[in-house]
């Protein structure tokens, strides 16, 4: 479904991604792991067209998207949940959800989807008249996920969903990611530092190191990989 082939992305003279290739298949949860500054966010930004790759190609359902403007990429069915959530702070939660459906025209469908999101995320419903900026980090993460789902995406890209959340909410967020994947059939590309958590729900994983993919395997194998255990999983 999503396929990156030999993607090289530069920030000025600095190469952030070196020959990154990865695939996400329909209805799959794939996690992209790595430490700080290894290119996780750049990979995500490249997929979304927020930065342009110098070489290589990004394809979505066989269609090349690496030269499209971001708005067209979102229209094609990729919805991002951005790092640090990035809600519209002074719009209400309800309005934030409506903005998520910006690319859609079916008023009736949007209304039922809002109700569906309220059922999926009870916290979001509770807070729907509040300004998004007045919510706690975990609640904002819920709104960000609901907003992304409002676009009826085929692929959800999540950038560091666990960042800055209490352990309780981290569990909750990962639970919901699984639920979304199972019930809505949405594929998820999970960009995470929290390798333990990410691998516990993913089917496959890629490990990025200084802009290169150094490991790629099923989640089960990655968990047992000695290198992986030493570097990322904290197993002595």
């Amino acid at each position: 479904m999503l396929k990156l082939t030999d993607v090289n992305t530069f920030y000025g003279p600095i190469q952030a991604l070196k020959n990154v290739s990865l695939t996400v298949n329909p209805k799959e949860i794939v996690s992209l792991l790595g430490g700080n500054a290894c290119g996780k966010s750049t990979t995500m930004k490249t997929i979304l067209g927020l930065v342009r790759p110098k070489h290589g190609r990004v394809e979505f359902f066989g269609r090349r998207i690496d030269r499209l403007p971001s708005s067209d990429i979102v229209r094609a069915g990729i919805a991002p949940v951005l790092e640090a959530r990035r809600l519209f702070p002074f719009l209400t939660v309800h309005e934030n959800l409506l903005m998520g459906a910006y690319t859609r025209n079916d008023t009736e469908g949007i209304r039922t989807d809002v109700e569906r999101m309220y059922a999926l995320f009870p916290v979001v419903k509770e807070r729907n008249r509040q300004l998004a900026s007045t919510l706690s980090g975990g609640e904002q993460q819920m709104v960000a996920m609901a907003r992304a789902l409002m676009a009826r995406p085929k692929l959800l890209i999540m950038d560091e969903p666990s960042m800055g959340l209490s352990p309780l909410y981290v569990d909750k967020v990962f639970e919901i990611i699984q639920m979304i994947n199972r019930e809505e059939g949405v594929a998820v590309l999970l960009v995470e530092q929290n390798a333990n958590m990410a691998l516990s729900i993913a089917c496959r994983g890629y490990v990025l190191q200084t802009g290169e993919i150094v490991l790629h395997d099923t989640a089960e194998n990655l968990k047992n990989n000695p290198l992986m255990q030493k570097a990322y999983l904290g197993v002595a």
């Binding site: 979304l48 927020l50 971001s70 708005s71 979102v74 229209r75 919805a79 991002p80 951005l82 990035r86 809600l87 519209f88 702070p89 002074f90 719009l91 409506l98 903005m99 998520g100 910006y102 690319t103 907003r147 676009a151």
Partner: peptide, 18 residues
């Protein structure tokens, strides 16, 4: 609505397809 979204958070507006 698109204009308001841009003012509130340009990156997020871009990400919702504006």
């Amino acid at each position: 609505r698109a204009l308001t979204a841009i003012r509130e958070n340009e990156l997020a507006a871009e990400a919702t397809g504006v």
